[in-house]
Simulated assay, not measured.
Amino acid sequence: MKILLTGGSGMVGRNIRDHVTADRHDLIAPRSAELDLTDSAASEAYIARTKPDLIIHAAGRVGGIQANVADPVGFLVDNLDMGRNIVMAARKAGVPRLLNIGSSCMYPRAAPNPLEESSVLTGELEPTNEGYALAKVMTARLCDYVSQSTPELAYKTLIPCNIFGIHDKYDPAVSHLLPAIIRKVDQAKRSGVDSVEIWGDGEARREFMFATDLADGIWTAVARFDELPGMMNIGVGKDHSINDYYAAVARVIGWNGTFIHDLSKPVGMKQKLVSVRLQQAFGWMPQTPLDEAIAITYSHFRALNDATEEPKS
């Protein structure tokens, strides 16, 4: 197939491109300089010209709690524009299939765990990333509306749990939890610091999937698109406390210091574990154990840092 991938330069997009299945298709992954998804006219023109058989919409402005709290307007508007423009341009061009990549932030903050797909739009969202979540909910709902009103078009949404891995972002201004932990613990080890700070009490629970596994799940969804539900979670089916993730990173890196909790800092939702009931029925589950995924990610992080550090004279 000819497949248009948005967000091909991001972590999820790059893992999709790196997957062995990518070579079996004519995969188009324009950079933002080539296709500005916040420009509706440009999006329409690009899709009309390229005529893809399927679109994977993985583009988005992403970041952790700190980034979302600092710029809620940007996270809402940018993601809203990107989602609307790509879906409506695809609809206008008659693209038959679209796979929208959502986010577990779409779930209400008080929804019972594990989070069932039917819980979307049933309650108040988590305030620390509400703008981003609203944009993702809108795009998923727009896909539903298009599919309902135009039966020959199948626009579906995958809702991943939290993702980390190769090509992740480690800048504390934009990073998510696990890459932030990797950076902090690595700095502590390399500088000889014997303690690392954790925001909150560390008891909040999160589910993380290795980005390489997510890419495999996305390509499986592409190959078996007609079997895919209109909206489906994609996760590992197990969560850990933030304290557990810090301990796992310290174990993998080989740092033996202590952790200090700053109870004044925001922590987000107390738990965010997606239900994998539909995913298991679909017949796919991730394969990479947590410690192995952390080790691979850490190796990539160190390679990036070693490449940018100036050689000592």
Rank of each mutant, 00 (worst) to 15 (best):
residue 1 M to D: 10
residue 16 I to D: 09
residue 18 D to L: 08
residue 19 H to T: 04
residue 21 T to F: 15
residue 23 D to W: 10
residue 38 T to N: 09
residue 38 T to Y: 02
residue 39 D to Y: 06
residue 44 E to V: 07
residue 45 A to H: 08
residue 47 I to V: 15
residue 47 I to G: 06
residue 49 R to T: 11
residue 67 A to W: 06
residue 68 N to E: 15
residue 68 N to T: 13
residue 73 V to C: 10
residue 76 L to T: 03
residue 83 G to V: 00
residue 86 I to G: 03
residue 89 A to M: 06
residue 102 G to H: 00
residue 103 S to D: 02
residue 104 S to Q: 11
residue 107 Y to R: 05
residue 111 A to P: 01
residue 111 A to I: 01
residue 113 N to P: 08
residue 132 Y to D: 03
residue 136 K to Y: 02
residue 144 D to T: 05
residue 161 C to D: 04
residue 163 I to T: 04
residue 165 G to K: 05
residue 166 I to R: 15
residue 168 D to A: 15
residue 171 D to E: 13
residue 173 A to K: 11
residue 174 V to E: 12
residue 180 A to C: 04
residue 195 S to T: 06
residue 200 G to M: 04
residue 202 G to Y: 07
residue 202 G to F: 10
residue 204 A to E: 09
residue 211 A to E: 01
residue 217 G to Q: 04
residue 218 I to G: 00
residue 218 I to F: 03
residue 221 A to K: 06
residue 222 V to L: 04
residue 224 R to H: 13
residue 228 L to K: 09
residue 230 G to M: 07
residue 242 I to Q: 14
residue 245 Y to T: 05
residue 246 Y to G: 08
residue 249 V to D: 03
residue 252 V to T: 01
residue 253 I to L: 13
residue 254 G to I: 11
residue 270 K to G: 15
residue 279 Q to C: 00
residue 280 Q to F: 08
residue 285 M to I: 09
residue 285 M to E: 09
residue 286 P to V: 07
residue 286 P to M: 14
residue 290 L to Y: 08
residue 292 E to K: 07
residue 297 T to I: 05
residue 298 Y to N: 11
residue 298 Y to F: 15
residue 301 F to M: 12
residue 302 R to H: 09
